[in-house]
Amino acid sequence: MKLITVIFSVFVLSPLTVSAAPQTTSGEIRFIGQIVDSACEVGRAGTLSSSESRQIELKPGLKLDVDTYRNACSHDALPMTMTFEPLKTSTDKGIVTITYL
């Protein structure tokens, strides 16, 4: 009887140990969960379709709109940093890097 209980326990607990272990398949990392706050859409000033947005001035003459409607940027929060790096070949063009905190 004890042997049957042990075998039954192994069959019941085996799937739990396999699913709880981190799974790496072909160099992929997989996460399970849910997105609590959606990301903030960012675009040039005047290009967003949302009626709720705020403007951020990265440098003089370069303004970006940040969507604030029901996402991580609402309620005066800005959970990201933005930087502008000008291109060496142009004075008015560059790369905007957005990093979420």
Rank of each mutant, 00 (worst) to 15 (best):
S50A: 13
A77R: 15
S74Q: 13
S90T: 04
I35Y: 02
L87Q: 12
N71V: 07
K59L: 12
T83A: 14
V12C: 05
E85M: 09
T5S: 10
K93A: 13
K93P: 00
T24W: 05
A72V: 08
S50D: 09
I98D: 03
T25S: 12
L62H: 04
S53C: 04
F31H: 10
V36P: 00
R44Q: 10
K93R: 13
R70P: 00
G61E: 06
V18Y: 12
I98W: 06
L87D: 13
E41F: 09
P79E: 03
L48V: 02
V42W: 01
T17Q: 10
V18P: 00
D67H: 01
S14F: 15
L48F: 09
F84Q: 03
G46P: 04
T83L: 01
T97P: 03
P60A: 15
D92K: 11
T83C: 01
S38L: 11
D92H: 10
K59H: 05
A45M: 12
L58V: 14
S51H: 08
G43T: 04
K59R: 14
K59N: 07
M80W: 07
L48R: 00
A45D: 12
I98S: 04
V42G: 04
Q55H: 02
L64P: 01
S90R: 14
M80E: 01
V6A: 12
S19M: 14
I32Q: 11
I56V: 15
T97I: 09
K59E: 12
P86T: 14
D65H: 04
C40Q: 05
R44I: 11
A21G: 03
C40M: 05
G61R: 03
A21W: 10
F31S: 08
F84I: 08
T81F: 05
L62Q: 03
R70C: 02
C40R: 02
P22C: 08
